[in-house]
Structures are given as structure tokens and as C-alpha cells.
Design a protein around this nucleic acid. Sequence first.
DNA 1: CCCTGATTCGC
DNA 2: GCGAATCAGG
Length: 234
Amino acid sequence: MSWTEERIATLKKMWEGGSTASQIAEELGGVSRNAVIGKAHRLDLKARPSPVKANDAKKAKAAAKPAPRPAPRKTAPSVKPAAPKPQGQPAQPAAEAKPAAAVTPNSDGSIPSQPLPNRSPDLPKIVSVGPGGFLRQGPGDQQPPIPPAPPRRLVPAKPSPEIADKTSILNLSDKVCRWPMGHPGEADFHFCGVAVNPGFPYCVEHCGRAYQAQLPRGARRPPPPLPFGGPRVR
DNA sequence: CCCTGATTCGC
DNA sequence: GCGAATCAGG
């Protein structure tokens, strides 16, 4: 697998969205978790809570421990450097705490106008990518899904014309076929909705899709496409 | 053990 | 540039 534009875009989106490298790797397919991390770093995407690096306060412990880099490499079983030179810089004490995002008054003493914080400043966004490749976004994600103005009274939302006469998840019952049509998250995602094959959750047609008779070897027909595009082929 | 990200370094 | 191997913390 190569890192195409799209794959890189997905990687970025998910990485910045807070997905773990494993999740990203699984979503992309064909790559390992390591590959994802390696790529992310090459893209300068790093800086995410790392279990192994988060700690900085235990500097005393770290400093106390010589911890010479043992050059991990399978193809390098050679002897370790007998005299690891102190490659570490003398721990800059000058790294004083940055004022960081602290509000600094202007010279005239006024408070500089602060651009409205994008709601949760540094909270990790929850972003996952569904089977169809669409992005699931968590609450508080996305820029302005905010209702513009408070309506004076609440009116039952009309279904979008797209799915006006289609079976939404709200219309599901024991009586109608619950075979999904399209992909979840898409505007026109809906369910089959025709009368069920009695005793089954699907109509007769979709029962035929859902329940396949086990045929003798060699007599099997190629399986029909599964809902949601089926499991990913890797 | 499992998970995580970081890092190194042969390819 | 890529990613397996490895490290190290939770």
C-alpha cells in the first residue's frame, strides 16, 4: 500500500481527531499501526498524549537513570557501544514555563480581544471513520452546526425531501423490512420499509439476501453485496 | 498480559 | 520515505 493523497488525508483527519494509530491503521487497511505512527511523524503530525512521553515531571528519575540508548534493532545484535557519550543536552533549565495561552495585556493595559475560543480549546475531538469512509463526528466537533436562532416555538422537524417518503430509523417496526439502504450517515440513508416476511425482520426479497441456503461445495453462487458495503476487503 | 505513542534504522 | 522492531508508560 502506498500513501496516496486520500489515505494521507484520512490519516491526518483521524490523527488530529484523536483516533488511535491502531484505529487509523485498521480504517486505512493494508498498513500497520507502526506505519501509521511513522507516517504521522513524517508528516509532523505528532504531539499527542503519549503514554511514554507524557511524563516530564519525573525528570529526577529520568536524570538519575543513565538510560543509554540501547540501539534497538533486530539486525544489530552487535555489542552495544561501550562508552555511550552523554549526548543529552544539560537539561535546559532555561525552559521556563511559557506563558502559553495566557492572556497578556497590551502595553496600555487593556486586554487584547480574544478570538472566541473554538468552544472546547484542546479537548481531543472524537472522530471516527465509518465503514463507508464517512466521518462520524462527535458532539462539539464541526465548526458551526449551531442552530442560528432560538425558534419561538418548536415545530416537528420535517424530514428532508430526500427521505421524505422513505423509511427512516424512526419508522422501523416489526411490520416493515429493516434492511438498510445506503450508508449510515448519508443523507438518504433509510431502510427498505416494505412489509416483512412474517416472522423475519426483512421482506421476502431481503430475507433471500440475509438468509442464504447452504449449498453444496461447487454449487455456490457468488455472495450478493452486503449492506453497508460489507466488511472491508483487505 | 493488553493497550498506547515514540524512536531507531535497515531497507 | 517506509515501517518492523523495539522501548516504555498506562
